[in-house]
Design a protein around this nucleic acid. Structure first.
Lengths: 369, 369
DNA sequence: TTGTTGATTGAGACCGGTCTCAGTGATAAT
DNA sequence: ATTATCACTGAGACCGGTCTCAATCAACAA
């Protein structure tokens, strides 16, 4: 029996007003829940809206109000469990405050990131949360700020941009993780990360444009230097941007006779691929090689042995940054805040003393040095 | 030196028109890329737009055109790797066709799903992709259709709703998976799924409102019956809706003396928790218990032993459904299509013959039956 | 009784685009 | 020379809401 609106244009306030025999303005007041209307009229309008099956056009609504109720989020890679968990934190906080989330992937490419930001601004999102893929080019982020919309940074700080930022204590936890390895006796430790630089070769920290990664490498190198490890930079590997690339990097790293005795993986995707390569090469963890990975991904607890991980508060990271942004959206004015969440390490079974074989190897080699 | 637009209202076509000394209509033609304009005027307008740093208001644009360039996606749980991979497929296809994606989580709750759909319609998305959490209540999905926007279903078909749908051959692959277990000699096989029904107890298929799950259980039961397994229904478990619940279900299932000798997990999140419980209880895979899980999640290949999985073409699932929807958005009219992608099984090391101990157990028990 | 106040309502402008339609020259066709 | 054709351009309506402002009316105070 229901035959309402075969497929015509959608029902508008005017339609409802006509049906309820009131003015457009009055109907709008009831439907929009603002202003003041008498009880009788309110009922009439609601009834009319019901029979007509009225659905507000949020687009038109946000055009006049200037608010869309949407938070734009730009992350590097939604498929990375790190980001999907952070996004979950953001979504939950957003929903709790009555906001919705529109998501965009930057694939860690600055141009894609710029396009995404432009698009989201065009869509008039109320605010943005970005995981900047580069600290060199932040013009598009300045634009956001300039357009009057608040911006908050997730996981990566930008020295040049003084906005709300939530990160973790990357430097510190990298030091602790490296410390565990050094304490176990390792002197040949590799650090493998996704960030890519020209040449894929690590020269020095100035080529790393992602703050979180730079801090981690800084911490890593600092502890290595403190422990008098010679030239720890030689084992830093960049460009593990995909499973395939990671496998290449790991295979190359582990196939040399003077391979490192321990590896620190910059995220769980990298850690997983490295673990697979270790298995493929017939090496044992931790007898032949020790492994620590960032992010307590689900797989890390079911391997044999389970993997020691850097357990970042990812969900809280997302939740906090969203809350910070939302407070600002609600009109709070205060100097930008830079929150640094603390991180713990979950020690499981993937760290042991360095492989004797390699240490021996080294000793005999040292003559040719 | 850049001090453009301190923080005032955003620049509009009218502003640009004034600056370029042409009419609003002409400026709009240039800026909107439609109609016809002379070369000179085109240049002038572009120059004016540049100096003013004009950014189109997509909201206003979509209000008049009626198109937003956005595809709304409602999935059960973005954190589930199954969905995040599918969403990736959708996003890629969308971007390739010039569409953007706005994502919403239903948490597999029909009311949340309804709210999400209402919101997305309000935002005037051009089309929707939904993973319906229930086949009982589809009124909100009918509404989408009625509003003139195309709808496509992902992973779960709805008999009552004749729209573009992409699923996998759940029934068939469940039969093959169960077949592997039966062929290995198992007669006590459990099926654990997330769908929740009143009472958490499985009675019969009519309580399962998620088509994909129902088909899987159908396939599972069919093969069991064919193999003359008696009352296979007794080992079907519902309500593994969260890691905690799954652990409860698994622990209960595995702690009885007549525990099943094999388990089929309905998704990788469930499979992972079951695997953890198996480890916690000190059982061995596959000696004490065989395990097959749906979805080739990353963890399944690094456990010892690696897990035999049902490898659904998840990315393709998302990509296909998006492509179907986009073709319709571009005006293609044809009867709704129901695509069924085929699925393979990756046999690894988690299936073996049933535990003798339990089989013995059963034999002695059978007298009391 | 008369001015004041406040709740309620309608008219119409506005948001920032798109789009239709009519008008203006200029060039091409007859 | 006259008309048809065509490329351009401007005016103004429109999308579907919100919001300001003035008008109306009943109750209340003086």
């Amino acid at each position: 029996m229901k035959k309402t609106t075969p497929k015509s244009r959608s029902v508008t306030v005017s339609d409802v007003a006509r049906e309820a025999k009131v003015s457009k303005a009055t109907a709008a007041r009831v439907l929009g829940g603002y202003g003041t209307v008498s009880g009788k009229v309110h009922e009439d309008v609601m009834a009319a809206a019901k029979t007509l099956d009225y659905r507000p056009n949020e687009l038109a609504r946000s055009m006049t109000t200037g608010k869309s109720g949407i938070i734009g989020v730009v992350v590097g890679d939604i498929e990375n469990p790190f980001f999907s968990l952070a996004v979950r934190g953001i979504s939950d906080a957003a929903r709790a405050a009555g906001f919705n989330v529109i998501l965009a992937n930057s694939s860690e490419q600055i141009e894609v990131e710029k396009a995404a930001v432009r698009l989201l601004i065009g869509k008039r999102v109320d605010g943005l949360i970005v995981t900047p893929s580069e600290s060199r080019d932040v013009s598009h982020l300045r634009d956001i700020h300039r357009s009057g919309r608040p911006l908050a940074l997730l996981d990566r700080a930008l020295p040049d941009l003084d906005v709300d930022t939530v990160t973790v204590d990357d430097r510190d936890v990298a030091m602790r993780a490296t410390g565990i390895l050094v304490d176990a006796g390792h002197r040949d430790i590799a650090y493998v990360t996704a960030v890519d630089a020209e040449g894929h070769e690590f020269r020095d920290l100035t080529q790393i444009y992602t703050s979180s990664v730079r801090e981690r490498i800084e911490g890593f190198l600092a502890v290595c230097h403190d422990a008098r490890v010679e030239n720890p930079e030689r084992h830093v590997r960049l460009g593990a941007t995909s499973p395939e690339e990671t496998r290449k990097v790991a295979t190359k790293l582990l196939s040399t006779p003077d391979r490192p005795t321990a590896i620190l993986a910059s995220d769980s995707l990298i850690g997983l691929e490295i673990f697979k390569v270790i298995q493929t090469l017939g090496l044992r963890v931790p007898e032949d090689i020790s492994l620590i990975t960032f992010h307590d991904a689900d797989w890390t607890s079911v391997t044999s042995p389970p993997i020691t991980v850097v357990d970042q508060p990812v969900y809280a990271l997302g939740k906090s940054v969203a809350e910070l942004l939302i407070r600002r959206l609600k009109g709070e004015t205060r100097p930008p805040e830079r929150l640094v969440l603390s991180t713990s390490i979950i020690e499981r079974g993937s760290v042991g003393p360095p492989s004797k074989e390699i240490v021996e190897n080294k000793r005999t080699d040292s003559s040719s040095d």
